[in-house]
Amino acid sequence: MPAKSATSRKIMLLAPLLLFLGLAYVVPFLGVVRWSFTLPEPGLGQYRALFTDPLVQSVFFRTLRICLIVTAASLTMAYAIAYVWVRGSSLQRTLAEFCILVPFWISVLTRAFGWLAMLSNRGLINTWLQSAGIIAEPLALARNEFGVIIGMTHFLIPFAVFPIASAMRSIDERVLLAARGMGASRTRIFWTIFVPLTYGGLIGAALIVFVFALGFFVTPAILGGGRSVMVAELVYLRIFQSPDWGLGAAISVVLVLFIGILLALMRRFIKPAHLVG
């Protein structure tokens, strides 16, 4: 049957990828799952610790709080950029495209240090403000949650732009014209027609940014300066600095499960193809 051979050919094309994902992610993850139930001794002890250890609890809540703020900030800014990118003049579009693409060429590490150079006590902003006489003591812009949020938001905005821009592009221009023709003001058209028609893109963007943010390691480690540890850094600390592999593994498992649930939710709201624009 031709249909069957076409299907099997597709599976063969996918096979190398599936094999790679299996060996590089699934097998090691199963090992992590096993540690979470066996180290330091067999049982559910590590999972119990997740719900009782105040340090773990506080890291979880901080991670959730930072991720929510970062998501809200990224979405707001990405919406403005996407709007200019999709509906601006050709010069504005080119500029927006540049702003969206350039961050992809700069590594996350470079960007985190870049922000540190801007935000630290002896960074550009504090030096300027002090030499201008506006402030006497440096502002605490880095090595805290504020710095982490700035760095993460900056990194994640471009990822939010694509699904939002894709939703904006699929709006029928005549629908907006129709609203104008009925006497609606630009503000009303924006809030009652334009924005609701991009909800799909906003939900997709929110999930992408949130899921991405949950696993952030480098940016919080550098800009948080050890004072605002997020969940990924906690896993790192448990495994590499304190011999507590079981707890680190259990945190990893919970994180992966949580992200899996979010991704399953995302599939219900938005087609994966729309996320890349």
Binding site: V175, L177, A178, G181, G183, A184, S185, I193, L197
Partner: peptide, 17 residues
């Protein structure tokens, strides 16, 4: 928006949401 004529567009241009 200030002329406020009724208009029926090709493809109707209904508000899909």
């Amino acid at each position: 928006e200030d002329r406020s004529y009724g208009m029926v567009f090709q493809g109707y241009a209904l508000f899909p949401h």
